[in-house]
């Protein structure tokens, strides 16, 4: 970005807006530093005296900085975003149950209906925790990939892991709601 009048290229993605590499591990302190530095430059408060069309442009620039910060601050959202950038679309609609969990989830839902106790919630949470840990591993694998081919392979696995995680997060909510907590 040039100094003076703020400019962000139209095609810049969230990583580029904040001047960060396309990685899944981002140092929170660095993210924050970049965000504050850019905010100081493009925030609409700095251009209150500008003509209306300029103001509207500034609102958009500022929104792009904020949008980038919002998405990149949340690791799962960051990963989803990266996949979208790489053309790996998120499946439409509700997250579907991963095939290897079908049996277990069926049991859990049965348990809910028959009024089986709080042990269920713990079981679901443990599954979600596992999925989360798997995601963390994939973040590292992605950033450490030796070549483009390997990296693309990780992205494929990441796609599945994200759907799994989302499904389980919904299931945790469902179970907690059913158990009244």
């Amino acid at each position: 970005m040039a100094a003076g009048l703020p400019e962000i290229p139209e095609e810049a993605d969230h990583f580029a807006v904040l001047g960060l590499p396309r990685r899944l591990r981002i140092d929170p302190a660095l993210l924050r530093e970049r965000f504050l530095e850019r905010s100081r430059r493009v925030h609409p408060d700095r251009f209150a005296g500008a003509p209306p069309e300029e103001k509207s442009r500034i609102q958009h620039l500022s929104a792009r900085v904020n949008d980038a910060h919002r998405v990149l601050s949340d690791p799962a959202a960051r990963a989803e975003y990266l996949l979208a950038l790489e053309g790996i679309e998120r499946p439409e609609g509700e997250a579907k149950c991963p095939p290897d969990l079908l049996e277990e989830v069926f049991e859990i839902r049965e348990g809910l209906l028959s009024g089986a106790g709080p042990g269920l919630a713990e079981r679901v949470r443990a599954l979600e925790e596992e999925a989360r840990a798997r995601l963390e591993e994939l973040y590292d694998e992605h950033d450490g990939a030796a070549g483009e081919e390997e990296r693309r392979a990780v992205l494929g696995r990441l796609r599945e892991a994200l759907v799994r995680r989302r499904f389980l997060a919904n299931l945790v909510r469902e179970v907690e709601k059913a158990l009244g907590g």
């Binding site: 609102q59 500022s62 929104a63 792009r64 904020n66 910060h69 919002r70």
Partner: peptide, 11 residues
């Protein structure tokens, strides 16, 4: 746009 998003925010 979720609550507590910094504004301006867009989608």
């Amino acid at each position: 746009i979720p609550r507590n998003s910094t504004i301006p925010a867009s989608v």
